[in-house]
Amino acid sequence: MSQDYLGEFEQMVLLSVMRLGDRAYGLAVKDELESVAGRSPSSGALYTTLDRMEKKGLLESYAGESSSERGGRPRRYLRLTPAGRAMLSETRSTLLALWEGLEGALDG
């Protein structure tokens, strides 16, 4: 797995999914990205990324409830797989290692 590296947007998406817990589905992720990270990705970008990460085994999805306002289509709930968690934590520790000793450097 370590030859793959999470891109910035992928990290954000995975973190949003984690933060939302069992309420994580596409639109909620989008809202979360917007409210917390100030990013409003296009649908193309977001859903392509979700599909790609599911294909890589970082995410898994399951069907949720449907409603009339969704045209009768189910929600696609998302959660991290163990591989996804491992990847995220690996990325975090790599970044933290790189940041070590630099905490004050940007302020000066």
Binding site: Y25, G26, L27, K30, S43, Y47, L50, D51, E54, S61, Y62, A63, S66, S67, E69, R70, G71, R73, P74, R75, R76
Partner: peptide, 29 residues
């Protein structure tokens, strides 16, 4: 949502839950 646009998007999206979920999200928004 305009049905013809929905049809275009639907054709580009993968079949199954991924595509249906995406179209549902778009409809909701």
């Amino acid at each position: 949502p305009p049905r013809w646009l929905e049809r275009i998007a639907g054709r580009a999206l993968p079949a199954g839950l991924s595509g249906q979920g995406t179209l549902g999200d778009l409809a909701e928004e």
